[in-house]
Amino acid sequence: MDARYLGIAELVETPSVAVVVDVMRAFTVAAWAFAQGAERIVLAESLDEALALKARHPDWAALKDGPPAPGFDGVNSPALLRSVDLAGRTVVQKTTAGTVGALAVKNASLVLCASFVVAEATARLLRDRDRVTFVVTGEDGRADEDLACARYIARRATGSATDAAEFLRRAERSRAAGELAEGVRQGAHPDDVALCLELDRFPFAMVATLEDSLMVLRPRAVPAPTDEPSA
């Protein structure tokens, strides 16, 4: 596989296959939303768009970065979301980096949104792809946790056995993990870092497509091949 690792600002052309990585916390939160029963996630371009969608669809659940705010149902914290019943609901998500990265590649032929919790399923969907662009959303493309996750997925996409420990350690020592652990970031829970580092907690990948002008994320189950080497 020819893998490229680019920050959002480095995307000068639309890639054919894009994997948008946001470990802490957008696409860990998205995976938890699906685990809690959400049917789909609409990735909003702005807070105003998220609020407008929520106003038109009061039954939708809107999530944002930072502290709680009027009009939003919650924040981008996996720990705070894990007790919320989202069965059959649509979630609107707006974050600082993850949703921005996904919208930046919305015209790609395949867009996957990823984090460690869905790494293996994501890698399986990439097995037959010759060229993949990993969009590293945090810190202008330099976020250690996102780079570590992207490189791990790329290794697993080759089908080879890969020790995840070194990649998870890099993520655990990242600036984002430190800020979450120290309470620097608002709208966080003490368990967020641990939940973001749970490798392959969920058996699905997350595929984003344009639906009626909205970028919509949905889970896709990816069965494990019986002859595949373990990570």
Rank of each mutant, 00 (worst) to 15 (best):
M1D: 00
A3G: 08
G7S: 11
A9H: 15
A9D: 15
L11T: 07
E13G: 01
T14N: 09
V17Q: 00
R25L: 10
T28G: 04
T28A: 04
A31Q: 06
A33L: 04
R40A: 11
L47I: 04
D48K: 12
E49P: 07
A50I: 05
L51N: 05
L53I: 10
A55W: 04
R56E: 14
H57C: 06
D59V: 05
A61H: 06
A69F: 06
G71E: 07
D73A: 13
V75C: 13
L80R: 14
L81E: 01
R82C: 13
S83L: 04
V84C: 09
L86C: 06
G88R: 04
R89C: 07
V92T: 06
V92C: 07
K94M: 08
K94L: 05
G98I: 01
A102C: 09
V105Y: 00
K106M: 11
A108C: 14
A108I: 01
L110V: 12
V117P: 04
A119D: 01
E120A: 10
E120D: 13
A121M: 12
R124N: 10
D128H: 15
T133C: 06
T133P: 03
F134V: 02
G138H: 00
G141M: 07
D146T: 04
L147T: 07
C149E: 07
R151L: 06
Y152Q: 08
I153R: 02
A157N: 13
T158Y: 08
G159E: 11
S160D: 13
T162Q: 12
A164L: 01
E166K: 08
F167N: 00
R169A: 13
R170P: 01
E172D: 15
R175I: 12
R175L: 12
G178L: 06
E179M: 13
E179S: 09
E179Y: 10
L180V: 15
A181P: 03
V184W: 10
G187N: 03
A188M: 01
V193H: 03
P203A: 08
F204S: 02
V207F: 03
L210Q: 14
L210E: 14
L214S: 10
L214G: 00
L214D: 12
R218H: 09
P219R: 13
P219V: 04
R220C: 09
A221Y: 09
A221Q: 09
A221F: 11
V222F: 06
T226E: 13
P229K: 05
S230H: 09
A231V: 11
A231Q: 06
